[in-house]
Write a protein that binds this DNA or RNA. Structure first.
Lengths: 208, 208
DNA sequence: TTTGTGACTATAAAACTAATCGGTCACAAG
DNA sequence: CTTGTGACCGATTAGTTTTATAGTCACAAA
């Protein structure tokens, strides 16, 4: 067996999947990237930060971009977590759940933009290049939408004539300007009204 | 009166509003910008094209950007015209009118992107800087939407509970990714399904 | 007055060079 | 086997210099 044990899902990773050093690299990258930005951080900087040589980094990551991917994935996972927490509350109507989904996804994204701009820039670039992390994020949000719509239909709160797939796809498309980090930055002017306006529009279209 | 007679609406114009030379400049700019792009065209190029000196251009336009504004306005006016032609057909239901609005605005925008990329780039830049031409374009599309929704409500085809303003604003927001040239380029992947999907979603939300 | 220009400047973009950085590899130590 | 590195190469990038260009102005001809 010449091939080193690869991580379960993620590509462009090298060496043992769960390794102390890997976590150290990610931690250092998170600090450096968010402080100086992706472009101004060199791989040597990260190596120095954890007290190893640059070459050693490449035992764990395929490329600098792969490190960016990891940091970006963390970033987006936080948004997903925030949304999950917001909508997974007992005794919430699908309507209310959906409102919260929209509100939280926008608020968390905007927060990232203003309070962690350097990390946001990575996420935006990732979105522009369709990195796996971005696709996973997108898919996760879509899953949340599908879950809420399905529940709403079962309860009888939402209409059932339109194919579920079409509904979910359309909703996802309408939310894209605020879900996708690359697009969000061009829609900041609408961030105040958008949650209510868009939620209302979509919920009206879901009415039985 | 020291101030030269300014054009009625547009700022950053100089000298007589309707002047043969002005049209010549615009014509030359249209050709050069669409062929070589805004950046690669110099004001001297335009001057040479119409057989005058560069300085004379500045008797009619405040800046090179002002010329770009004029060309961009033409561009967007063509989209507006296409939409107008598509929806102003006798005996069309508001529903059908709306479908045509969405379909045409997307198709014309995409066409501009693929067949007149250099001009599209100007429009995209204009959108990113919110030039007056872009704002006017936006306002015009919004007016079309308002007109259709109003008619649909009068006929009883659309619901009347939601405030008209809110409805129009929400629809405009949902269409933005395809109306705004800056955003359109990031949504090309959805250009096939978007018209139907988005139209259906919005029309469902308009149902009485 | 209106039409038109050459000469000028300050700024921005090319062009070029030097340094840096991403990434690899052979090799060493435990 | 795993852990770890210095030396090296090609491609970007940073820094500088040089060139081109946007925009102004004083002035001239009709």
């Amino acid at each position: 067996m010449n091939q080193p044990s690869k991580s379960s899902s993620s590509p462009s990773l090298r060496g043992p999947a769960d390794h102390d050093i890997r976590d150290q690299i990610v931690a250092a990258a998170n600090e450096h990237f968010s402080q100086y930005g992706y472009g101004k951080t060199t791989v040597s900087d990260l190596a120095k930060a954890i007290g190893f040589s640059k070459a050693y980094i490449y035992k764990f990551f395929d490329s600098k971009q792969a490190i960016g991917e990891a940091i970006c994935a963390n970033c987006l996972a936080e948004i997903v977590a925030a949304v999950e927490q917001a909508i997974n509350v007992e005794d919430l109507s699908p309507t209310e759940r959906f409102r919260r989904l929209v509100k939280t996804v926008i608020a968390t994204g905007v927060n990232l933009f203003f309070n962690d701009r350097k990390l946001y820039d990575i996420a935006a670039f990732a979105a522009s290049e369709s990195w796996p992390s971005t696709q996973a994020y997108d898919a996760q949000i879509k899953r949340f939408v599908a879950q809420i719509v399905r529940e709403g239909r079962e309860i009888g709160e939402f209409e059932r004539k339109t194919p579920l797939d079409e509904t979910v796809e359309a909703i996802h498309l309408a939310l894209r300007p605020f879900v996708n980090p690359l697009l969000l930055q061009y829609n900041l002017d609408f961030v105040e009204e958008a949650p209510t306006l868009t939620s209302n529009l979509i919920l009206r279209s879901l009415m039985p």
